[in-house]
């Protein structure tokens, strides 16, 4: 029983991480038809930004208490800025050439980890975690690491914030409409490209936040972390239905749980395969994903 509890919460924590990456990926694809292969790199930037700040290099930031909160905010901000630069400098000029656009994001996705390892080395660096988040708590006989709760809470807050943004604000309305029919949004007098930048900023922020607190989960940062997570985020996006936030949330939970349980009860690594099998099975039954559309 205690194993099951631990596996469930670890699976949910992993799912939370997937959701933080997949939510932005899904919105970007839904609105802009851009598959952003650089999204994992944005997560890595968030992770390294946080690690850099928390290891005492940013005044005021540090590994504990408010200093850690500041470090996470810094890492998230750097990732957000990187996402905006990516959209303005790489995606926008290639807007009419989708193939080159994809190649460019692949290029950035490869260049960023290379750059990170050139500066800080290819080896994993220990991630300075605050004491308050390093412990465990008891639940139904299991000792569950606290960082799982941090991840789950962050994902739930991001989900709610995105829902409120999409459902209650004019910009959110433009994004939802743009997911359905971009041309018609411009034909009603709204510059949809501003929404592109905004969606990149939001998606980048979520991914960078995932990187920042993902360091807690993994206990270290390394240049390839974001990129290796990206593939599962893509699985989540496809399963959830391109452009659907609720779908991405549900699929994140499913993928995280299946992966954890399969990895534990069968051979390590089979869980990753099980996720791909799950994707194939779902697409056979529901070709448009769990939801089919943004909600």
């Amino acid at each position: 029983m205690s194993t099951v509890v631990l596996l469930v919460l670890t699976g949910l924590g992993l799912g939370a991480l997937y959701f933080l990456v997949a939510s932005g990926l899904s919105l970007i694809f839904g609105l802009m038809d851009v598959l952003n292969f650089a999204h994992g790199a944005l997560m890595s930037i968030g992770a390294y930004g946080t690690w850099w700040a928390a290891s005492g290099r940013l005044p005021g930031a540090g590994p504990g208490g408010l200093g850690f909160v500041l470090a996470v905010a810094f890492g998230t901000a750097v990732g957000t800025a990187a996402a905006v630069v990516l959209e303005l400098a790489v995606i926008r000029p290639l807007y009419t050439r989708p193939r080159e656009q994809i190649l460019a994001t692949v290029g950035v996705g490869l260049a960023v980890p290379a750059l990170l390892s050139a500066i800080w080395g290819a080896d994993a660096r220990p991630f300075p975690a605050p004491d308050a988040l390093s412990g465990t708590f008891g639940l139904l006989g299991a000792q569950v690491p606290l960082n799982r709760l941090v991840l789950i809470a962050a994902a739930v807050i991001v989900l709610i914030a995105l829902k409120v943004f999409l459902g209650r604000t004019r910009h959110g309305l433009v994004v939802r409409a743009g997911v359905e029919d971009r041309a018609m949004v411009t034909a009603l007098g709204t510059d949809v490209r501003k929404a592109f930048t905004l969606v990149f900023a939001i998606g980048g922020a979520a991914a960078a936040l995932g990187g920042a607190i993902g360091g807690l989960y993994f206990g270290s940062v390394d240049p390839e972390q974001g990129t290796s997570l990206l593939i599962f985020a893509f699985v989540v996006v496809v399963m959830g239905g391109m452009g659907s936030l609720t779908g991405a949330a549900l699929a994140s939970v499913g993928v995280g749980l299946v992966q954890q349980f399969a990895n534990y009860y069968t051979t390590d690594g089979l869980g990753d395969l099980a996720v791909v099998v799950l994707l194939a099975a779902l697409l056979l039954v529901r070709p448009r994903g769990l939801t089919g559309r943004l909600a």
Binding site: R176, E180, D181, R293
Partner: peptide, 9 residues
């Protein structure tokens, strides 16, 4: 021509 109504909205 196709009315351009946003169906999900």
């Amino acid at each position: 021509e196709d009315r351009g109504v946003f169906a999900a909205l």
